[in-house]
């Protein structure tokens, strides 16, 4: 009789194996997949896992970055280095281009964000390159609408998500069949939590953009959220007064105009893990795009957001 207890693996290894399985399933079931790479930690971990999934071959799909033009400069430096390191192909979809071509209209007012416009550029990029599956770093623990998302998430010919009519997913069997013009979003990290992601980054020694680590940064306050001062944001008179230098870091990295910073002294991965363990706010608690309404995420996802 074999000793079953020696065949236990910890839950991080289980999650890694599951994600690799999903990545390979995506390559096998679709003709032209792409991996959406934002430069945020989740997409970095996903790309890292993709490298493992197909080693020693290169990734069988490109990385696609939807560039709002409102990036933290560190994100772009990091992106280019990372892509070079793993010898991947990079495709950039530009929100600025969508605006210049009149396909997207910039939001008006001081609190304008290009976050919503990403959806237009993303759908355009998908259509132009005929991608039939886009791998995303979304996790179910992030937000209540995402908790209902499938690993293989079907999108109709308008790129929309219909949460009430999703295909059931059982065991480890994934149905990626689709009609002409439809596509899929695939989420290999569905079952990971924020803590799992950090523990994995630590265990694998994955390099990250500096933005995740605490530093003295120029910030201001908008609607109770601390935002970085950047060239893309016009401050309202009452916000001018809140300009200051502060030890902060970012728990998520998105468009610079809406990604909130948290006060923090966490300058190493270990510090961050400690901070995440003690956190009393969800990581998207700092995202002003989620605060626009109770179901803001669902509404954006239905339109075709990640």
């Amino acid at each position: 009789m074999e000793n079953h207890h020696s065949y236990q693996v910890n839950h991080l290894k289980q999650l890694e194996s599951e994600a690799i399985y999903i990545l390979r399933e995506t390559a096998a079931q679709f003709e032209k997949p792409a991996l959406l790479f934002s430069g945020g930690k989740d997409s970095i971990v996903m790309a890292w896992l993709a490298r493992k999934a197909f080693y020693p071959a290169k990734l069988p799909f490109p990385l696609v970055h939807v560039d709002t033009g409102h990036n933290f400069p560190e994100t772009i430096t990091y992106r280019d280095q990372f892509v070079a390191d793993i010898k991947a192909n990079l495709i950039v979809g530009s929100v600025q281009e969508s605006i210049d071509q009149g396909r997207a209209v910039e939001e008006k007012g001081a609190k304008a964000s290009r976050n919503a416009l990403q959806t237009v550029t993303l759908l355009d990029t998908i259509e132009k390159n005929a991608y039939d599956a886009c791998l995303g770093g979304g996790r179910r623990d992030e937000e209540k609408a995402r908790a209902k998302e499938r690993f293989f998430s079907h999108r109709d010919e308008f790129g929309q998500w219909d949460p009430k009519n999703q295909r059931p997913e059982l065991w480890n069997i994934f149905n990626g069949r689709k009609l002409q013009g439809e596509h899929f979003r695939v989420f290999p990290l569905s079952n990971w939590t924020e803590m799992d992601v950090w523990q994995y980054i630590k265990a694998e020694k994955i390099p990250l953009p500096n933005l995740y680590f605490a530093d003295e940064r120029p910030v201001f306050t908008r609607d109770g959220v601390t935002l970085a001062q950047t060239d893309f944001i016009t401050l309202l008179p009452e916000e001018e007064a809140s300009k200051r230098m502060e030890m902060v870091r970012f728990r998520t990295i998105g468009d610079a105009t809406c990604t909130g910073a948290v006060r923090s002294n966490a300058s190493t991965i270990d510090d961050i893990i400690e901070e995440v363990a003690a956190a009393r706010q969800t990581e998207r608690g700092g995202r002003s795009d989620d605060k626009r309404s109770e179901t803001a995420m669902e509404d954006r996802k239905k339109q075709g957001y990640f």
Binding site: R140, K144, A147, K164, Q166, S190, T193, E294, T295, D299
Partner: peptide, 24 residues
């Protein structure tokens, strides 16, 4: 309201789809 995240669920007070939750 913690688990019923979709608009229709909150409006009708029902749960529509399988939702996955994580805790430790």
């Amino acid at each position: 309201l913690l688990t019923d995240g979709l608009r229709a669920e909150r409006e009708q007070g029902i749960t529509i789809d399988v939702a996955y939750r994580y805790f430790a």
